[in-house]
Design a binder for these strands. Sequence first.
DNA 1: TTAAACTTTCAAATATTTTTGAAAGTTCGG
DNA 2: CCGAACTTTCAAAAATATTTGAAAGTTTAA
Lengths: 168, 168
Amino acid sequence: MKLTEARQQFISNWGAFGTHWGINRTMAQIHALLMISPDALSQDDIMAELNISRGNANMNIRELINWGLVERVIVAGERKEFFSAEKDIWKVVRQIVKERKKRELEPMLQLLDKLENTEGDKKDKHMKAFLDTVGSIKKLSKQADKTLDTMIKAEESWFVGNLLKLFK
Amino acid sequence: MKLTEARQQFISNWGAFGTHWGINRTMAQIHALLMISPDALSQDDIMAELNISRGNANMNIRELINWGLVERVIVAGERKEFFSAEKDIWKVVRQIVKERKKRELEPMLQLLDKLENTEGDKKDKHMKAFLDTVGSIKKLSKQADKTLDTMIKAEESWFVGNLLKLFK
DNA sequence: TTAAACTTTCAAATATTTTTGAAAGTTCGG
DNA sequence: CCGAACTTTCAAAAATATTTGAAAGTTTAA
């Protein structure tokens, strides 16, 4: 396969992949494009490569910056802004874990805390089933929360070298 | 908060949560409902509780069964089918991990293998950036694949007890 | 074998999300 | 300042995903 085709496949699959993870297609595609680009790209470059509108490009680049996956780059002698993506994939993974934890796991834990205090007859089977489920989800979520915190601080070498052995 | 309201909140939040994870709202809501129900429910019960149509209920229950999260239950003396969800949340998590790995990680690995063989001048900076990125994603994905395999086989006690310590 | 009870399907309708692009806003060199 | 270069916004349009419900299919008790 030629580079041009391979690049297209990578971008398009990364986009499809993103949609299974609550990330929109364009945002994932821009990310993919920047990850495989040796140099920073301007918004116009991105629009041209991916065939998307100015508004779409702008909004999704901004979102990638919010997620900490892309940064603005100043190119000497150029008026416009350029963008480049973090290339260290382990950093990317940690950054995504960190953001999703903040956006999803933490609110979920808050909800579970609140739901655990539901009032009612603890002998009633509906009450019991509810509290059991909420309680066990909370327990697991708390554990996941702590584990992810530690993972966010870990080095790639840990992941690549040590985790597997532990499981065995 | 009263049980009725708490149940509704749980169901509705579990549904919203699901949408961030590529699971549709109704499917997640049915799952939530079944998890907090002391007894198995019929399709009509589910339709009534969640206010959804027959077709929608049927399709999403089927999908939950495909995912291995819900099972059909025979209730003595009843003609219709009943459904119940796995209550052991650790089993639920492992099951979800297993399915997503199969559906997403494995196809991704196949793609990366293919893309790694892209032909071209390895001195060209576009080529180099592409191969570097693809290569490092592949490396990490392979590691994740193995790690998840081991996790799928692990006991809850492992997760709750041991993982955290290792990270430190 | 029949018909009532129940389940599944799927085309059309609805809802949700994403994208567009033109207009408004901002920045900066001169 | 001015105006060209550039960025951001957002209402409307398009694309995508989900839901409906009636019709077709299946199962079972008698």
